[in-house]
Computed example of a mutant assay.
Amino acid sequence: MLVAVFGAGYAGLTLARTLERTLPADAELVVVDESTDHLVQHELHRVVRRPSLADEITVSLADALGCEVRQATVTDIDADAGEATLEPPTGSEETLSYDVGAVCLGARTAFYGLDGVREHATTLKRLADAREIRRDFLDLTDGDRAVVGGAGLSGVQVAGELAALADERGVDAEVCLLEQAAEVAPAFPDSFQRAVHNALVGAGVTVRTGTAVERADAESLSLADGETLDYDQFVWTGGITGSPALDDDRPVVRADLRLGEATFAVGDAARVVDSDGAAVPASASAAIREASVAADNVAALVEHRREGSGGFEPRLARYRFDVPGWLVSVGDDAVAKVGPTVLTGRPALALKTTVGAGYLGSVGAIREATDLVREELGIDAGDVEAAPDDIVDVSGTE
């Protein structure tokens, strides 16, 4: 019996590592991803200012997993038939048939059909993007302007890194963050929004809310209010859309995460509605927790099919989104909301770094976890008090 996990981001890697421990010995597990490495996306913005962090946030899939890892791009999935179309880096297109599968392909940056934005903006999804953003910013001089479109957590973090990089270089370049909603971090609680806004302003970022981009050319943005905003660098973090393998859609799945007859969708690849009927935000924390539910349900279907239990469907676990806090970094500052309490500065930064290191440890990347803590906080990982297991870091996922 073949179990296939498509994608090795937060959801896919967590799911695969769990299945390696829980699947019966006669079940074969294969993970398919376009890369041979797992990228810790919520720390990617740090590479803009600290290129050396790239090694600390990259985990070899061969080291993290003991199952077969196949490098290929998933171009199509038939969730009911249990078939996926794969395109290897070299070689012809092939079809992979599976008995039980999970789609964990994440999401891509959305451009919403805005004329010129895709062509002229840099996104932040890969290490190459972070390096390009850094390279372009280092070319700026006094009086130049870098514009970041979208003030979700990804946009907040890259704007914070660029402002800090300007300070480090002693360059009087403006970093301008645009958001069409009335507040930054629009999907989050009011107290968190206010603290993030204050941290951005404190870092020297020009924050403009209620400002929508309509089109872009090589030198300027046309805004919805008729203004033309010149720029020397343009970064876009304006939202997400689905994988091409799912026709650029993020299909809605219910709390059991079932997408097809024997296929589940986990993480940003789908729009999840939890057991309370609430829409689940696209986030690393949600993806990791959904993976635990998906692992139970994959195992249930595998067992059902092995036993040949006729038409009686197994009872599937259901996912409920419930978190007590949020974390985001803003240059050398950070904001953490833990229950009703909002933390900033060194305590928030330490908490965020500890959560990041904890995640690395959970996927077996102990050296990378230690190096991350040392790089970010200048101390050994053993000297950091462990963060609560239920604090989440959603940065860099939208």
Score class of each variant (00 low, 15 high):
354 T>H: 12
48 V>I: 05
369 A>D: 03
183 E>M: 13
171 V>I: 13
211 T>M: 06
339 G>W: 02
364 G>D: 10
69 V>N: 11
68 E>Y: 00
53 L>H: 05
107 A>R: 06
120 H>L: 12
376 E>C: 11
367 R>K: 14
34 E>Q: 15
6 F>Q: 05
299 A>F: 03
329 S>E: 14
285 S>T: 15
23 L>F: 07
149 G>V: 11
172 D>C: 04
18 T>F: 09
337 K>T: 12
387 A>I: 04
115 D>C: 11
296 D>A: 14
54 A>T: 04
295 A>Q: 01
231 Y>D: 09
82 G>H: 09
303 E>H: 12
112 Y>F: 05
232 D>R: 10
284 A>C: 08
73 T>G: 13
180 Q>T: 04
381 A>D: 09
252 V>G: 08
249 D>N: 14
143 G>P: 10
317 A>Y: 03
181 A>H: 08
144 D>I: 05
358 G>P: 10
232 D>V: 06
200 L>C: 02
359 Y>K: 03
322 D>A: 14
140 L>V: 08
219 E>A: 13
127 L>W: 10
177 L>P: 02
294 A>Q: 02
21 R>Q: 10
286 A>K: 07
104 C>P: 04
183 E>P: 09
56 E>W: 14
89 P>Y: 09
38 H>N: 04
116 G>N: 07
280 V>I: 01
33 D>S: 11
189 P>N: 07
347 P>G: 04
116 G>A: 05
322 D>S: 15
170 G>I: 07
53 L>A: 06
291 A>L: 02
234 F>P: 08
115 D>P: 12
397 T>N: 15
231 Y>V: 03
177 L>M: 00
328 V>F: 00
16 A>E: 01
